[in-house]
């Protein structure tokens, strides 16, 4: 995984194979992360709000703050590592600098909005939950798209 030192990843067959499988693994992990979140929080914004803030009509208790904190901390650790891995590879692609910067900026904003949204739900209410979980989905969608882009570039030996 010598992302920074190697001039061209495709020149080294072993390195290329390792990165290829790492990208597939990351995409799978991101897909599974989305599925797990769907099971935990539900599919619709109403279900997200009911899970985090509770719902008297559905007899659902609000999520314990310690559980919320633990979940966000664990999620964020994995997402930051995924972001670092994908960003350090994406820097090497032939995409324009402005495209790269825009993608990095969106990823950073969504990564910040996810924990802040959920943590401030007791202050700002349902809208914060919706922002937080929408950001989570957007981050995963973009990172999977970027990983796919990298995978194609690697297969075409352009990385």
């Amino acid at each position: 995984m010598k992302f920074i030192a190697s001039k061209k990843l495709s020149d080294n067959v072993t390195l290329r194979a390792v990165i290829l499988w790492m990208l597939i693994t990351l995409m799978l992990a991101m897909g599974l992360s989305l599925s797990a979140k769907r099971i935990d929080f539900g599919l619709t914004p109403d279900a997200w709000i009911a899970t985090v803030m509770g719902s008297e009509a559905e007899f659902v208790d609000p999520l314990l703050f310690s559980d919320l904190l633990l979940g966000i901390h664990t999620d964020l650790f994995g997402l930051i590592i995924t972001f670092i891995l994908i960003a350090s590879l994406y820097v090497r692609t032939s995409r324009t600098t402005s495209t790269k910067i825009t993608l990095f900026a969106i990823l950073l904003i969504t990564l910040l909005s996810y924990p802040l949204g959920l943590l401030t739900s007791s202050v700002f209410g349902a809208i914060a939950v919706v922002i937080g979980l929408s950001s989570f989905i957007l981050f995963h969608s973009i990172i999977i798209m970027m990983a796919m882009d990298l995978l194609i570039a690697l297969i075409r030996r352009r990385l």
């Binding site: 901390h73 650790f77 930051i80 910067i101 900026a105 950073l108 924990p115």
Partner: peptide, 23 residues
């Protein structure tokens, strides 16, 4: 923009560290 990105990432890492401490 790069400076803003660097600051954004710094904020993210600090947030994660604060969350760890908070937990």
């Amino acid at each position: 923009l790069l400076t803003i990105l660097a600051l954004g990432f710094g904020a993210l890492v600090i947030l994660q560290t604060v969350l760890g401490g908070w937990l």
